[in-house]
Amino acid sequence: MKVETFPIVGPILITPDCFQDTRGFFLESYKSSSFGHHGIPSQFFQDNHSRSSKNVLRGLHFQSPPMDQGKLVRVIRGSVLDVIVDIRKSSSTFGHHLKVVLTDQNKNIFWVPPGFAHGFLTLEDDTDFLYKVTNEYSKAHEGGILFNDPSLGIDWGIDVKDAIVSDKDLVLPLLKDLESPF
């Protein structure tokens, strides 16, 4: 497998070894011993699966301690623009964002550690997005940042007026108004 790190410390992009033949393909989407060498935990408590139409924008979400979540995310059908924002107060990259494209073709897997707000925009209809999380969902610990906060400077690749966004995500706070728990 190929592992890519970034100027923002913590996130990791993994391109798994994929073995293809006339029958199809095989890859290891998670292996504790391999992923653990790169700081990815060996214990996950919940798996999530979403299917979305094109231009659905979900996020930017996080959970606060003690229910904070690391996420191991991938796409098994379609494609997404996956975006994270560093919300670790002591980080030199606080407020910076990182974008990766995850598709069923590139089969990349993205590790998003705790301390990051996470969101994605679907680039195709019927996109299936899977993610393993290091803690169970807790409504009492959920938080987020407004996806189109001008201070973040995120280019989602579309006019955000065309994005399909939940009512809940439309009223998330700006980064400047966030009391980060990290």
Rank of each mutant, 00 (worst) to 15 (best):
M1F: 11
M1C: 09
K2A: 09
K2V: 02
K2M: 10
V3G: 00
V3N: 00
E4H: 09
T5G: 01
T5M: 07
P11I: 02
P11L: 03
L13S: 07
I14E: 03
P16W: 05
D17H: 15
C18R: 14
Q20H: 12
D21G: 02
R23N: 09
G24D: 09
L27S: 11
L27Y: 14
S29H: 11
Y30F: 15
S32G: 04
S32Y: 02
S34C: 06
F35P: 00
H38Q: 09
G39Y: 04
I40P: 03
S42H: 11
S42N: 14
S42M: 05
D47C: 12
D47N: 14
N55H: 13
N55K: 09
R58G: 04
G59V: 02
H61V: 11
F62C: 03
F62Y: 15
Q63I: 07
S64I: 01
Q69G: 04
G70T: 05
G70A: 06
G70S: 00
K71W: 11
K71H: 10
K71L: 12
L72P: 02
L72E: 02
L72V: 05
V73S: 03
V73Q: 07
V73M: 05
R74E: 03
V75E: 00
I76R: 04
I76Q: 06
R77P: 01
R77V: 03
R77E: 14
S79C: 08
S79Y: 03
D82M: 01
D82P: 03
V83D: 08
I84E: 04
D86T: 01
S91A: 07
S92D: 14
T93K: 07
F94V: 06
G95D: 10
H96T: 13
V101M: 13
N106F: 11
V112L: 15
P113V: 11
P114E: 15
F116P: 00
L121N: 10
E124V: 01
E124A: 13
T127R: 02
T127I: 09
L130M: 15
Y131C: 13
Y131D: 10
N135R: 12
N135H: 15
Y137Q: 10
Y137M: 09
S138Q: 14
H141C: 13
G143M: 07
G143H: 06
N148L: 00
D149I: 06
P150M: 11
P150D: 10
S151E: 15
L152G: 01
W156N: 08
W156Y: 06
G157L: 08
D159W: 11
V160N: 02
V160D: 06
D162E: 15
D162W: 00
A163G: 09
A163C: 09
D167M: 07
D167R: 12
D169T: 12
L170W: 00
V171F: 10
L172C: 12
L175K: 13
L175I: 15
K176G: 09
D177A: 09
D177Q: 10
L178D: 04
E179N: 14
S180R: 00
S180A: 14
P181R: 10
